[in-house]
Design a protein around this nucleic acid. Structure first.
Lengths: 210, 210
DNA sequence: ACAAAATAGTTGCAAATGCAACACAAACTT
DNA sequence: AAGTTTGTGTTGCATTTGCAACTATTTTGT
């Protein structure tokens, strides 16, 4: 299987020529889209970063997914119901590509390269998402805050081939991502330091093999 | 979007004629596959039911996914590492279709209908998996045992258009699926009954709108 | 440069959850 | 039909986690 396809390079070059596609820019903090309506929207983050966020009836914030360059998102991936109202929020200045899922199959008037390539690569794009979601489930099913934290650090470490981890989100957001209480997480982080599992070096966290 | 494609009907009719595909039968309790090696295996459950299971270093069992007829699974959906060793276990007598992901793209010698249809429907098959996984994440990110239980019941209720829910797994397995302690779950279940959120009728659970 | 907002860090206490150990019932095995 | 295994239901107690309320620090906006 080849997952090395550089979707970004392709997007940059061809998306502008297709009349079924929209590209929009967003500033930090702006809402990119919400998942309430049923529009079969398929989005791709071309630049920046964004979070898919849910607030429950208690005001608990959960970061369902964290997107970086190349990630796909949108209503197409969800069964929307009244109990889950999501929105995607830009965490940095971001560039987002929008189109409708059905438009991928129905060739556009120009029969453009964008369409053909997108249709061809679609399984891989979605497969990448499945792999991301499974990694996320792997984390969420861990039973303790400690295991979730170590699991998260390990995932980042494996991804970057380094024991030194640059955090891709604030600790406050990390708690919302791991679906745990922030202060309880800080306490566990302190214990992990004291017990020699991790250490903080500047704004990075170093995983100590223990 | 059309997700109504009946993969099962198709599989039954055509899979036998393709030389890249294997069909195997399994009895309850047998291991269908494990996810340790890297074979790009893509599987589809044609009949029966099965669980994707992980045991952690403490012996905690987690049911990562529960598969019924038509669900896809296999290594192709995972980044395998040493910290997660999974296997898929048949919960009933099951029939499973096996093939390698790469073989979908490389047409088989017969250029058979099975291949062509599978390639065409692949995005939808994987998209269905994404939707399932997102539903699962929705459950796992809920903060309390109560919310997980109610969320689970609601999902089943929505899926079957009924407030009366036939459990698709034992309560013991449900606890492993929701990644919570069984006795704590039983306690919460009792409280939910006493507070009038649910009631038990025979082997079914009825959701009371409260 | 200053104020405001967001993030990090900490703590005591309450509440929720997990653990261990039961008894009992139902379902499979031979 | 008896024994074994698996699932249900329950409880006391220990531990973990969440909540609330702070202070200190860093970042952002004007």
């Amino acid at each position: 299987m080849n997952l090395d396809f550089d979707i970004n390079e392709f997007m940059e070059n061809f998306s502008k020529s297709c009349n079924k596609v929209q590209i929009k820019k967003f500033n930090k903090g702006e809402v990119i889209t919400n998942y309430i309506q049923k529009r079969n929207q398929f989005c791709m983050l071309m630049d920046g970063s964004a979070d898919l966020v849910r607030y429950d009836y208690n005001g608990n914030k959960t970061i369902i997914e964290h997107f970086t360059k190349g990630n796909a998102f949108g209503e197409i991936f969800y069964t929307i119901n009244t109990n889950n109202e999501f929105f995607v929020e830009a965490k940095k200045s971001s560039k987002v590509l929008f189109f409708k899922y059905d438009d991928i199959k129905t060739m556009c008037s120009k029969n453009c390269t964008f369409h053909r390539t997108l249709e061809e690569k679609l399984p891989e794009i979605i497969l990448n998402k499945v792999i991301d979601l499974n990694t996320r489930i792997e984390l969420l099913t861990k039973r303790t805050i400690r295991d979730k934290l170590l699991g998260y650090f390990n995932t980042l470490s494996t991804r970057t081939f380094s024991k030194t981890i640059s955090m891709e989100m604030s600790l406050t957001n990390l708690a919302d991502y791991l679906s745990i209480d922030r202060s309880a997480m800080m306490r566990e982080l302190k214990d992990l330091k004291e017990e020699g599992f991790i250490k903080k070096v500047g704004d990075k966290i170093v995983l100590l093999h223990k």
